[in-house]
Amino acid sequence: MNPRAARAVINGLLVGVAVIALFPLAWMLSVSFMQPGAASSLPPPLLPAHPTLANYARLFGYAGMGRYLLNSLGIATGITLLSLAINLMAGYAFAKLRFAGREATFRTLLGALVIPAQVTMMPLFLMLKWMGLVNTYAGVAVPMLVSVFGIFLVRQYARGLPDELLEAARIDGASEARIFVQIVLPLLRPIVVTLAIFTFLASWNDFMWPLIILTGQEHYTLPIALAALSREHVQDSELMMAGSVVTTMPVLVLFLVMQRYYIQGLLVGSVKG
């Protein structure tokens, strides 16, 4: 094949794949602005004939989506901050502090990755019921507060920090807490950002555990609320698309703005350590 034809084929295929990847998202956005009922006609319209915000008004009005949006924001932010603190401390210790049992402990944690989280769901539910945490924000957050993957990511990155810097600080009499906060954390900034995005996206998108632990509507996160809504309003595609936009746009925008960090983290995490 001559180079010009090859170029046309390759770029043509890329355009095709990009259209497949993006079309459902573009269609979601378009239908969310259609008049109620407009999408269910033949031929199926691609663009709203009379754009309207009515679906969003219904969504935030009687469907109470504002509350669920705040729930999702609050839970994802809380999980992100807490788990960052916990994973950063642990990852740093595994990378830079010397102690007996370090490798064995780390290997045990990695080994635990083969156990799917679902085996813990039934006993965890009973445990949280006993602790009074069923149907609370804390109940949603608890299993996401530590991530072995996150610890691994921090450890990989922190191993590159120069030991001399830490030793110099120790000789100057700095406490370990001070070394961690004032020297290590600023150096870990890129991986902190990466891990923050990962955690935020994961907790925002999480479905099965919140579905189990949230028994009342008032604490619903967006995915749970959307799933419940879709069971009640099967016919109402315009309302459902507005709901999908509200659920998925925040994370899509976050990804677009921060994608450099996200992709970098994905690649660090996928390299065997």
């Binding site: 794949v17 925002w204 998108n205 999908s244 998925t248 899509l252 976050l254």
Partner: peptide, 20 residues
């Protein structure tokens, strides 16, 4: 970026889109 976008979307939300 375009090809990666579906990865970061919420399963529930995009599953609803596919249903329609």
């Amino acid at each position: 970026t375009a090809l990666f976008a579906p990865v970061v979307t919420t399963v529930v939300a995009v599953a609803v889109i596919w249903r329609y």
